[in-house]
Amino acid sequence: MFELLGVPPQALFGQLLLGLINGAFYAMLSLGLAVIFGMLNVINFAHGAQYMMGAFTAWMLLNFLGVNYWAALILAPLLVGLFGILLERLFLRHLYHLDHLYGLLLTFGLALIIEGVFRKFYGSSGQPYSIPEELTGGHNLGFMFLPNYRAWVVAFSLVVCLAVWYLIERTKLGSYLRAATENPTLVQAFGINVPRMVMLTYGFGVGLAALAGVMAAPIYQVSPLMGANLIIVVFAVVVIGGMGSILGSIVTGFGLGVVEGFTKVFYPEASNTVIFVIMAIVLVLRPAGLFGRAQ
């Protein structure tokens, strides 16, 4: 059996895969945060709670209505996205003219409410969600065992991220979005309904978080607190990447997931903190973030 840097290849590639999966979630969540921040100037602290809601919606659809994974993959983001639109209509839109701080505090409060309610009914232990039949099992690649579901998560999230990038950077709708980010008044003067676009953008970002939640459900247990700690790591990812660029968010998300995976192999004690350490280093060397524009 050959070894790489003193570590058996199974462990190395296993952690690499796990890192890629975490990276997929970092990328999808930071993408949603960046899209929302671009349009609303709000840092959505409830993003982790909405990711958790996505996972729970999938779990509820399966257990109460018998709706399978594939349908949940579409339904759960739609439902949670609609819930996001409701939040935007009821609360967030009253804060756009204020300091960004208030949007952060409001969504922090919303996150406490959502997580508190789920904890009330489901405790802090996790609910299992089984892998869909079509994706059980795996392939032996010789150097490692690749479970099908994990391969699917990495591939599908990459497709989703690139689709979002295409939507925003290459389509007419995306150009409206980018224009409205730069100068909403002018875009409105051209007859485009900017408030509605803002509302839909928030719904879209929230839906993206929910989609990540559905994909995470079979890998991690579905628990009320699954998003609470994740969102802090995602904040660090956003600071490292800078919110200026869509592709930047994707690359940073996957990259940091892989770095975290490798840390688990070589220095497990630091695996929880490595992303925060990288954040500190990046801030010292390049305060605007790797892909950010200087203010």
Binding site: F91, L105, L106, L110, I113, I114
Partner: peptide, 20 residues
């Protein structure tokens, strides 16, 4: 118990929206 967090969240929302 768990409702304390929910109530704190509600206070956050109410204060931010109405009593800044």
């Amino acid at each position: 118990g768990e409702w304390v967090l929910v109530i704190q969240g509600v206070i956050f929302v109410v204060v931010v929206l109405a009593f800044r």
